Amino acid sequence: MTYALLLIAIVAEVIATSALAKSNGFTILVPSLVSALGYAFAFYLLSLVTKTVPVGIVYAVWSGAGIVLVALAGWLIFGQKMDLPALIGLALIIAGVLTINLLSKTVSH
């Protein structure tokens, strides 16, 4: 259940960040509300996850997965281009998140 909550928090953060890009500096109501509510929901879920998983691990997974998924959304939804160094950086983030989850004894499975 803990990792399901973390996954939902990640999705909420990606939606909130994508809406933030459309809020025009919080001047457009609907994307601004989606962004604010999405972040609030994501942080609430993160607070629940940190009851059972160390905060450093939670934040590393949440932010790392969020970075990769927001970059993917930027590419697919907003038509943003990524060069080779950006792709390499994203691959390193994915490797870090996988290392934490699959190999670290800090994470309880």
Rank of each mutant, 00 (worst) to 15 (best):
L5D: 06
V97Y: 06
L103Y: 11
A65V: 15
A86S: 13
P54A: 05
A21D: 08
V11H: 01
L48T: 07
L46D: 05
F78E: 07
T52P: 04
A21G: 14
L92V: 15
V14R: 00
I67K: 01
A21V: 14
L46C: 04
L5S: 10
V68C: 13
F26P: 13
S63K: 00
I100D: 01
S108Q: 12
I57C: 06
T52H: 04
V55W: 07
V107Y: 04
V68I: 10
I93Q: 03
S63Q: 08
A65C: 15
G79P: 09
F43A: 05
G25K: 09
L84P: 08
L102H: 09
T50A: 02
N24A: 15
A65N: 05
V14T: 02
T106M: 14
V97G: 07
L37T: 13
T2Y: 08
N101H: 09
I10K: 00
M1L: 12
S35N: 14
V68R: 05
G38Y: 02
L72F: 15
W62M: 00
L33W: 05
G89W: 03
I94V: 15
F41T: 13
T99C: 15
L29F: 13
A4N: 11
I88H: 07
S23V: 11
V49M: 02
Y39F: 15
V34W: 02
G89I: 09
L20V: 08
L76E: 07
G64N: 04
I28M: 03
D83I: 13
V53C: 04
G66F: 03
A73L: 09
I88K: 06
V53D: 01
A12R: 01
L20I: 09
V49L: 01
L92N: 11
L7C: 10
I67A: 05
T99A: 15
L92E: 08
V30M: 08
L69Y: 07
V53A: 00
S32N: 11
P31G: 03
S23T: 09
L92T: 13
F78T: 08
A40N: 11
L103E: 06
Y44T: 08
V58T: 12
V68E: 06
A21M: 14
S47C: 07
V53K: 02
L90V: 11
S104E: 06
T50G: 01
L98A: 14
D83T: 15
L5T: 06
N101W: 08
P31Q: 00
L37E: 04
F43N: 01
G25A: 13
I67V: 14
Y39G: 09
V49W: 03
L102I: 13
G56S: 09
T50H: 02
A12D: 00
A73Y: 07
I10G: 03
V97S: 07
G66P: 07
F78V: 10
L37C: 13
D83V: 14
A21T: 12
A86E: 12
A65Q: 00
L87V: 13
Q80Y: 02
L84Q: 05
A60H: 10
V97T: 10
Y39T: 06
H109L: 04
T27H: 12
L46F: 02
V68Y: 07
L87W: 11
F78P: 13
A9S: 05
V14G: 04
L20R: 01
L37N: 07
A95L: 14
S104H: 08
V97R: 05
